[in-house]
Design a protein around this nucleic acid. Structure first.
Length: 503
DNA sequence: CTGGGGATGGGGCCC
DNA sequence: TGGGCCCCATCCCCA
């Protein structure tokens, strides 16, 4: 929160220069921000996504101002058709065109009424964050200087954000194509956003990057047009400077500016490639811990709506999956599937070592991970990611002559090879070794996917720190799950061990 | 250690 | 393009 909010930065003393602002607060009561608005702002802080019911726009704006989250405040103003020229809280500057009925926030001045119809949208999505603010590498408030906040003069004393360095233009040929070069390169302007809104920079006319034609039917998507690319631009320079746009993520990976369907996208935290449109935000919640979907009956929260829906079956008693052979009914289709194997007696998953057969693949895996075959294979503790990556002193299975190892060597090792190609010319490194230099990691990632990194710089760094946890262990770079491929994966593990042994 | 249910997270398809 | 819905793989927990 301190990374994104001037208020919290002060409050918790995150900023050294902050002086008296002083940390020490363990509990902070925020009566002045509406709960819904605070929710939205928290979501924004962690995911760079801002979702605001149109009815709550004002609250969010006010909250953003109070908490010193300038980019959000700017975005809200933009949407509301106000302007962020807050610097001068002088009412005198007010220029006409106040669009909405709202009693505008005292400090806002209306410059242009471009906020078009977004106001009535139910959801304002993704206000890209500029996450300048986010950057752990650059904790300086991104916006204070460039986007003076109305909320407090004291905040103004905070150092300005470092403007992103210019981007190589060749990489972003399309940058200027929306007709407003400024919209793209203006340093320090956080503009890009993720997904949705576009502009933040108060100093620049809001209309600037909106192609004229869009005024009427401007959709959020439209807004994003042309911005997605900028994003990457900014992202590569100093990471966090910009906010990348998750939406356009993919394009960057290829280095080209092709706006291909946004899938797949790389998670800036775990580097996992997420396939499917709109799936990255969902994935990000696994890192943020955010659980926006709450059961109205028992209060349990879920990260996904579909999971909540299934959960609700417990309350409704609905068990839609019925076994045709017995009265058993299940909540999940896969439960039924598992159950059916009982009737069929099928045990398609056989341990290659002891030939014990299982009805479920996960049971076979558990069997293999356990000690069931201890006498037949060299047992090793579950591989620890850091060790696996760094090589090192890990003990464990090294006997290549063991059945497991032999099997391993008969398999394909693509995932490993990909990993080891590392920062080379080839494939993207999926994992940063635990001991890798942080800056190098960041630079590497920025190079690989600047915009996605910029989208979640904070999370990315956190990810570096947490690497090696269960998250890593569960990674499935190959994305394969068939029994045969699973074997390859084991083989892959074995090979990793072999490598360790070599050292 | 195994069988089984439930939870979690990713991918595909469709709107 | 984002999200809903569904399926799948995997993990956790309990008996």
């Amino acid at each position: 929160m301190a990374a994104v909010s001037l208020y919290f930065r002060r409050l918790f003393g995150a900023e050294e220069g902050g002086g008296e602002g002083g940390g020490g607060f363990s509990v902070c009561q925020l009566d002045c921000v509406a709960p819904d608005a605070l929710d939205a702002l928290l979501e924004f802080a962690y995911t760079a996504t801002l979702t605001i019911p149109s009815s709550g726009m004002r609250d969010v704006l006010r909250g953003a101002q109070l908490l010193g989250i300038q980019c959000v405040a700017d975005a809200c103003r933009d949407i509301l058709g106000e302007t962020g020229e807050t610097e001068g809280e002088t009412a005198g500057e007010q220029r006409s065109q106040q669009t909405t009925s709202e009693r505008t926030v005292e400090t806002t001045n209306v410059v242009e009424k471009i906020s078009r119809r977004k106001t009535d949208k139910k959801k304002v999505k993704k206000v890209g964050s500029h996450h300048n603010n986010f950057s752990p590498l650059n904790l300086l408030p991104a916006s204070p200087a460039s986007h003076p906040s109305p909320i407090s003069d004291s905040f103004r004393s905070l150092p300005p954000t470092q403007p992103p360095s210019p981007e190589p233009e060749e990489l972003h040929p399309k940058l200027r194509q929306n007709g407003d070069p400024r919209s793209i390169r203006e340093p320090g302007r956080g503009a890009t956003l993720n997904g949705g809104l576009l502009h933040w920079s108060p100093e620049r006319p809001l209309t600037a990057h909106l192609p004229p034609l869009q005024t009427d039917k401007l959709s959020e998507d439209d807004d994003m047009e042309g911005l997605g690319d900028d994003i990457m631009v900014m992202g590569s320079s100093s990471l966090p400077t910009s906010v990348a746009d998750r939406g356009a993520a993919t394009s960057v990976v290829g280095g080209g500016r092709k706006r291909k369907s946004q899938t797949p996208q790389q998670c800036p935290v775990c580097q996992k490639i997420i396939h499917g449109a709109g799936k990255l935000p969902r994935h990000m919640r696994t890192h943020t811990g955010e659980k926006p979907f709450q059961c109205s009956a028992c209060g349990v929260r879920f990260t996904r709506n579909d999971k909540l829906k299934i959960h609700m079956r417990k309350h409704t008693g609905e068990r839609p999956y019925t076994c045709s052979h017995c009265p058993a009914r299940f909540l999940h289709s896969y439960d039924l599937k598992n159950h059916l194997s009982l009737h069929s007696g099928a045990r398609p998953f056989e341990c290659p070592l002891c030939h014990k057969a299982f009805a479920r693949e996960d049971h076979l895996q558990r069997h293999r991970k356990g000690h069931s075959c201890l006498d037949l294979r060299t047992r090793r503790p579950r591989r620890v990611p850091e060790l696996a990556e760094e090589g090192g002193e890990n003990e464990g299975l090294r006997d290549l002559s063991s059945p497991l190892s032999l099997q391993a060597h008969s398999s394909v090792f693509l995932p490993r090879s990909v990993l080891e190609s590392g920062g080379g010319s080839g494939g993207p490194p999926v994992i940063f070794p635990g001991g890798i230099d942080r800056e190098r990691s960041l630079a590497l990632l920025a190079q690989l996917n600047p915009q996605s990194l910029a989208s979640y710089p904070e999370l990315f760094l956190r990810g570096l720190g947490m690497r090696g946890g269960r998250e890593t262990e569960r990674e499935d770079p190959g994305g394969t799950r068939s029994p045969a491929l699973q074997r390859d994966r084991w083989a892959d593990d074995a090979e990793a061990e072999e490598a360790e042994e070599g050292e």
